[in-house]
Nucleic acid binder design. Structure first.
Length: 434
RNA sequence: GCCGACGUGUUGUAAUUCGGCGAUCAUACGGUCCUGUCACGGCCGUGAUCCGGGUUCAAAUCCCGGCGUCGGCGCCA
């Protein structure tokens, strides 16, 4: 459609062809208004019945909501119109009729359950609020790439079909690969390490990860988007610096570029870029503080994972993004390096929003002998990971990095109730389509 | 994997505690009136208790099974 004018670009005096969806029809008797919606906004089409061809009026007002229409006519300035202009049709074509009964209401007058919305995502995305979320998601991913490039990173894409998992086989989706057993990758972890040791040195990847955990919560997905960063010649502290810079940069971009969307979501007034210097508390402090809150039934001791309720209590107490550093070595995977002066303590860290965990990272074990020991300690066969371990024999620099859940970033940034809100077509324990 | 809650027209809901009126309201849909609506409005109308079994004079409501949805925990991004 070369001669199409978008709703927002219609100027008084011009002859325009507008194509879009019927948002609403208000028939007042002698005059009727049809609101046509496209991606740029809405424009009112005026039918003054005495002045127009009967057949055109009949056709224009007989369509159901969400039908696709193409209207050609003159654009007039009109103070009484919602956008200050309206179009008087000379001709009108019904491009695609919509059924009278819709599975949800795109005008937003009546609510719909999340499952109804996800079953009908196309219609759901005609709602301004849903669209705003995904416009912001797009801006977040753009800002993520820009930020990594500014930091000197090279964008990579690594295989999603793999022969072995990162940390064992239990959480992986098995598939058949030309008759061989294979899996959907749960993380680009091992690949990004191999690339940090390559000539690329500093890499990032934004891509899907697959987890076969049978959870059913507002913060888990079985297919999620992971924002991964890995760099040679940095340590855990520097990796945390990057995570913080990254997060603030993405928030900054949304604040600068997405005011309309934030307004639509009712967030414009409260949206702020998190302040720098996120608190960094050690795991030991974290369990002490969690114990002090009294929410945990049994006092946490060294080596316990932080239960969800403790994580929430901590988040409430700290009330901003914070790092938990120096996790016990025993709860972190083999590729996380231990502190040089204490093998019980690792360099692993998490970055949490008050509501949930966003990032997991750490300095990596780059020494071949210690790495192989780690495999064995975790009950894994190093031989199965030969493609990975052998590269540690050919000049593996110290390196560190992290992975951030893109959907969790959006959920916490936009205060969404459910992580499924942040994915167009979410995959969870029950949902496999659309 | 363990545990819990919920399932009513197109959509969102009320009634479910303590079984009992023609199953509420909004929205959509159909009809009708209306020349400045902007969640347009007025009047009239169509339309539903997830499926199967049981208890009872009587089941949306209680019991059992199934299916579906949502959530809590574990685990994690």
């Amino acid at each position: 459609m070369r001669d199409r004018t978008h709703a927002a670009d219609a100027e008084p005096g011009m002859e325009a062809t507008i194509a879009g969806w019927v948002h609403e029809i208000r028939d007042l008797g002698g005059i009727a208004f049809l609101i046509l919606r496209d991606r740029t906004g809405r424009i009112q089409v005026k039918f003054e019945k005495d002045d127009l061809d009967d057949e055109l009026v009949e056709r224009g007002l007989s369509v159901h909501r969400e039908s696709v229409l193409q209207v050609t006519g003159k654009v007039f300035e009109e103070d009484r119109a919602p956008t200050g202009v309206e179009i008087v049709p000379d001709s009108l074509e019904i491009v695609a009729e919509a059924d009278p009964e819709l599975p949800l209401d795109p005008s937003g007058k009546v609510g719909a359950d999340l499952s109804t919305r996800l079953d009908n995502r196309t219609l759901d995305l005609r709602r301004a609020e849903t669209r705003a979320i995904f416009e912001i998601r797009s801006a977040v991913l753009e800002a993520a790439r820009d930020t990594f490039r500014e930091l000197g990173g090279t964008e990579i894409t690594t295989p999603k079909i793999v022969a072995t998992g990162t940390e064992g086989g239990t959480e992986l989706f098995p598939i058949t690969y030309f008759g061989r057993e294979a899996f959907m990758n749960q993380s680009p972890q091992l690949f990004k390490q191999l690339l940090a040791a390559s000539g690329l040195e500093r890499v990032f990847e934004i891509g899907p990860i697959f987890r076969a955990e049978e959870h059913n919560t507002p913060r888990h997905l079985n297919e999620a988007t992971s924002i991964d960063f890995e760099s040679a010649f940095i340590d855990a502290e520097e990796a945390m610096d990057v995570a913080e810079t990254f997060l603030r940069s993405v928030y900054q971009a949304v604040e600068s570029n997405c005011q309309d969307e934030l307004e639509t979501l009712g967030l414009a007034a409260d949206f702020t870029v998190p302040e720098a210097d996120f608190p960094r508390i050690t795991y030991e402090e974290a369990i002490q503080r969690a114990n002090a809150t009294g929410v945990v039934d049994e006092q946490l001791t060294w080596g316990d994972d932080l239960p969800t309720e403790a994580e929430k209590a901590l988040g409430e107490a700290i009330d901003q993004h914070y790092f938990i550093t120096n996790w016990p070595a025993e709860v972190k995977p083999f590729y996380i390096k231990d502190e040089d002066d204490d093998p019980e303590v690792s360099t692993g860290f998490d970055l949490n929003h008050p509501r949930m965990e966003l990032v997991s990272g750490g300095q990596r074990e780059h020494r071949y002998d210690q790495l192989v020991e780690g495999f064995e300690a975790q009950g894994l066969d190093p031989a199965a990971f030969d493609y990975y371990t052998k590269m540690f024999k050919y000049g593996m620099p110290p390196h560190a990095g992290w992975g951030m859940g893109a959907e969790r970033l959006l959920v916490t940034m936009l205060d969404l109730d459910n992580i499924r809100e942040a994915v167009l077509f979410p995959r969870d324990r029950k949902r496999l389509s659309p």
